[in-house]
Simulated assay, not measured.
Amino acid sequence: MKRVGVGRQLAVCAAMSCLALIVIAFLHKPPYAASLAAGLPLHYQMGIGLGFGCCYWAASQIGYRFAANSESTRSTIESYSRLNLDGWNPLWISLAAGFGEELLFRGALQPLIGIWITSALFVLAHTKAYRFNGLNKRVAIQAAGIFTVSVIFGFVAEYIGLVAAMLIHALTDVVGLYTIKTAARRG
């Protein structure tokens, strides 16, 4: 199986960031920086982001123990095992996705089309990663999970701030990718 390199992942996230900046420049009203920096003060956003990240880590460890053999879990592990998760790659991929995806979906698109449509687009953006080909129980469960997480990111960005959403997204991905890395090694 050919593994997807970290460079490709970083390039995709960089392209998302560029697209986000283009959307913001052409479709948002100035001042642009003020709209991106809206929300609670930065130190609160960072604290809330870290708190959510720690809670997610605990919940994912418990959830994985109970659902390690489910079809959705096995499929997610198989899908993400295609990534090169050697060394620090899960961290770099997670930071890039947290920043790039949140800048595009929450910073650029959400103010224009709302949380719900943005979350639907977020699911569509993840169809290749999760191998959503056809509609079955596994696809429905995973798509519903991604949609729910996206809605949460949307509310966090709206009511707490974009930096908090970026941090929560990055920490969620770090936890997920290191869990997948460990599971793939075991099995």
Rank of each mutant, 00 (worst) to 15 (best):
L42A: 12
I146V: 15
T76W: 00
V6F: 01
I115V: 15
F26I: 12
V4R: 13
G63V: 07
C55G: 15
R131P: 02
K128P: 06
L42F: 14
F52I: 10
L40M: 15
Q110G: 03
A96M: 01
Q142W: 02
A184F: 09
L171G: 05
T179H: 12
V4M: 10
G49L: 04
L167H: 02
G154T: 04
I117W: 11
I168F: 12
S72N: 10
V174T: 02
D86L: 08
G87K: 07
G53R: 09
L112I: 01
P111M: 09
I77Y: 09
V149T: 12
D86C: 04
A38E: 14
G134F: 03
I168E: 04
I152C: 10
P30M: 02
H43G: 02
L177S: 10
E71M: 10
R131N: 10
G100H: 05
G39H: 10
K137P: 03
F99T: 08
V6T: 14
R65F: 04
P41E: 00
L171A: 01
A108Q: 04
A120T: 11
S35H: 15
G187D: 01
S150F: 06
N89M: 07
Y44F: 12
E78V: 11
T127D: 05
P41N: 04
L42H: 09
I117R: 03
L177P: 15
G53D: 11
A143W: 05
V139I: 13
A38M: 11
L104Q: 02
